[in-house]
Design a protein around this nucleic acid. Structure first.
Lengths: 349, 349
DNA sequence: ATCCACCGGGACGTCTTGTGTCCCGCATGC
DNA sequence: GCATGCGGGACACAAGACGTCCCGGTGGAT
């Protein structure tokens, strides 16, 4: 295991420290001597912060301080520090790049590839719980879908630092899958692990539209729908169009249509092409896509190279705010984005 | 340059953090689950400290916390962390080992070997100024000898974080060397750099004993001697017996006597063998060896493989409290100590 | 020679974080 | 049922971080 990997796991707080000092040293590489007010201004940092950091850099023999400002004492180490920072940042670059390209608030990437290592699902789950632990507050409403990833997330919730009195609601109805993977069950496990409460949704997710209309007038259903629409957080898995079409029991002509229209990703019964455009939809009970616009934060979770295209499709729909994925999927997404840019550039010439 | 070397220079504060976390994880390797009060007790640390560290280790996925205590989640990383800590400690082990073996309060080692790289003298000087910066207070009295190393130290004093109103006194008289290397000059440069004051010692260091007696009754000389005897710190260089005998102008029969008696190191006109026993002495003006016993802290500075034996001789005399040296000298000192131990062991059987 | 701009160092008040210590409810073993 | 150890919560106090301002020094421009 690389030293940088150990440090990332054991003392991740080193990175911001090194980043800051590298920033200062690099600035001095371009222009020296500089005073700390000038450095503070250039780097948009507090004067006191710069003073503290310069003190430490001086103690380490990297700079010397004179009446006219600060000078470097050792320049070769700066490039090597830059490389170290880059290594420690590791997936941080990719996280930030994808967040920027996809217009997301946050991307969290765990090492590995779910396609190659099933244990990565546990890491995805752990990262999701850590994230939720940071954002969830008492009395928040959390809507969750089903599926294997979210079931694993639910099992990981003991990682929470403290009980949280949230209301957990299934974001969709049952899909005829194993009871353990249904949104109802996931919601119940979530709630129990968090010390909160939950509401159940005793409906299938694939009713005919007429029945859907009739049932949506039921008071209980309206109540759950109202709760769902004001959820603070929605947590949902990412599926490929093909996989989800099969799970929803779509017929061959429907699947052919989706394929023909190049649908690759699915969420909430909607099928998206690579650009995030809806190419097909099935009615579904529970939250609909347009309901997501009123949600505080929509978190998509999923990993594995094979799901990268689906993830990109779903995320390009601009309904999500946060994505938690693995390195395998992230790298493929990045390549696809880069490829898209090259095509756009070629088309523009 | 190794990553660990970069970290040592740019963010040395990482080491105590990793050491602490390694300590906790290693304890759990032996015995788990453990509660934080038990860990606090075993490791002699505050309960709140342990709680904070466990929180971070939990966030990093290294441990999991249950109602019955803390368990490890990932054991292979612990051995690797141990190796990383060992690497980061670098010369710290040698510093602590030598301090222990020589009964010193502190040993400071800078990388490199003065015999191979003259720049190491600058590093020795820098380390000495950093050390003095930490210990010197206003109104302290500092006695300094001469020589090239201390002249370099004097030039390095701008590294001090703030002016210090200390009184600097030459610890000995002139030796007929270049004026720049004389204790008087070194003292003056020290004082000027520190913003303090200094006293001069207008005497040669190698007067005949009768003249020494006569002059020691002079009021001015008595005054300086009184000041020297109550010095808070003495800073002196380390010389080989041969080199110093030559500088002091000793005759061939005297040098032969020192050699015959296996004198290898010299300080304050005293010549020591490997065990720190005095094998010869010349009268000298200024501080005498026995005066050192009343000094708060005696700091010896010197480096280079070729001086290791001399350093060991001087330090074995038990007059010093702190030693600042380089890695070249330190490693040879360590080997000599280990060799002494083997000889003692063999002789004991 | 004077003025101005920038420098480092000093310092103070406020805010944030760290730490020691204690307590509560839970779980387990006897 | 009791004792012991657990994690989590919380509070008071201590320590450190930070923002902000000021002073004297330095050097360049006029």
């Amino acid at each position: 295991m690389e030293d940088t990997t150990i440090i990332q796991r054991v003392a991740p707080e080193l990175l911001p420290i090194l980043e800051l000092r590298y920033k200062i040293l690099r600035e001095l590489l371009f222009d020296q001597p500089l005073g700390r007010r000038a450095l503070a201004s250039k780097l948009q940092l507090g004067e006191r912060i710069i003073r503290r950091e310069l003190e430490r850099l001086r103690e380490g023999g990297l700079v010397e301080v004179g009446p006219d400002g600060v000078r470097l004492r050792s320049t070769p180490i700066i490039a090597e520090l830059g490389q170290l920072v880059h290594q420690l940042r590791g997936l941080r670059h990719l996280e930030e790049g994808l967040a920027r390209e996809l217009g997301l608030r946050r991307v969290v990437i765990v090492p590995g590839d779910l396609d190659e290592d099933p244990m990565v699902k546990k890491d995805l789950a752990r990262a999701t719980s850590v994230y939720l632990d940071k954002v969830l507050k008492d009395e928040d409403v959390l809507a969750v879908t089903g599926g294997t990833t979210l079931a694993e997330v639910a099992r990981s919730l003991p990682l929470f630092s403290s009980k949280r009195r949230v209301i957990v609601v299934p974001a969709r109805g049952g899909l005829g899958e194993e009871v353990e993977l249904q949104a109802n069950t996931v919601a119940a496990v979530f709630a129990r692990q968090l010390g909160g409460s939950y509401r159940l949704f005793h409906l299938p997710d694939d009713l005919p539209e007429e029945a859907m209309h009739t049932i949506s007038n039921e008071p209980k259903v309206r109540q759950i729908m109202a709760l769902l629409r004001r959820a603070d957080y929605v947590l949902h898995g990412i599926g490929t169009a093909e996989e989800m079409a099969r799970r929803r029991g779509l017929g061959p002509w429907q699947m052919e249509l989706i394929r023909k229209r190049q649908g690759v990703g699915e969420a909430f019964g909607y099928y998206f092409d690579r650009q995030g455009r809806i190419v097909y939809s099935t009615s579904s009970t529970g939250l609909r896509l347009e309901d997501l616009q009123g949600i505080g934060e929509v978190i998509a979770v999923g990993g594995g190279k094979s799901k990268a295209e689906a993830a990109l499709a779903v995320l390009s729909s601009k309904y999500q705010h946060v994505c938690i994925t693995d390195e395998g999927a992230a790298r493929v997404m990045w390549s696809l984005i880069e490829g898209d840019k090259r095509i756009s550039y070629t088309e523009g010439r």
